[in-house]
């Protein structure tokens, strides 16, 4: 999982690239590394452009990350969900929990000043 930091109008935004599959067998590393990322910034974007498959445990892990980000007074936003992943989000109504953007740039920019980073859509 590649993790980079970007500075938008004084806000530090962390961008993580999720890759491949996120299911019961490999969602642990994400949960493990999440506190490290949160130490750097509570404003996070998960770039899902290379995420091929997600199941309910993977979704559970992402929802867990969102909860932690909110607890730290930040937010987790998602970008570039492909058709299959988006379908699982829609099915489980998880779309209502997240701000979802069509590309990474928009997701990062949404944390900029003017847009209040503390409030999700």
């Amino acid at each position: 999982m590649k993790f980079t930091l970007d500075n938008i109008d004084g806000h530090l935004v962390g961008i993580a690239e999720l890759e491949g599959r996120l299911d019961a067998s490999n969602s642990k590393p994400l949960q493990k590394i999440m506190p490290e990322w949160l130490e750097k910034t509570p404003f996070l974007v998960f770039d899902c452009s290379r995420l091929d498959f997600i199941d309910s445990s993977g979704l559970g892990a992402i929802v867990g990350c969102l909860r932690k980000a909110i607890d730290n007074k930040g937010d987790l936003r998602l970008s570039e969900l492909n058709g299959k992943v988006a379908m699982v989000f829609e099915l489980t109504k998880a779309t209502r929990l997240f701000s979802i953007f069509t590309n990474r740039g928009e997701a990062v920019a949404s944390f900029a000043a003017g847009a209040d980073p503390g409030s999700a859509k």
């Binding site: 309910s56 559970g60 058709g83 299959k84 699982v88």
Partner: peptide, 24 residues
């Protein structure tokens, strides 16, 4: 299997509870 008839995208659920949402 869940399919979107318009885009043709299909996901095969590998969970036991197919589509049973998040179970902790």
């Amino acid at each position: 299997r869940l399919s979107d008839p318009v885009s043709g995208v299909a996901v095969t659920m590998e969970d036991p509870h197919l589509l049973s949402g998040i179970r902790k």
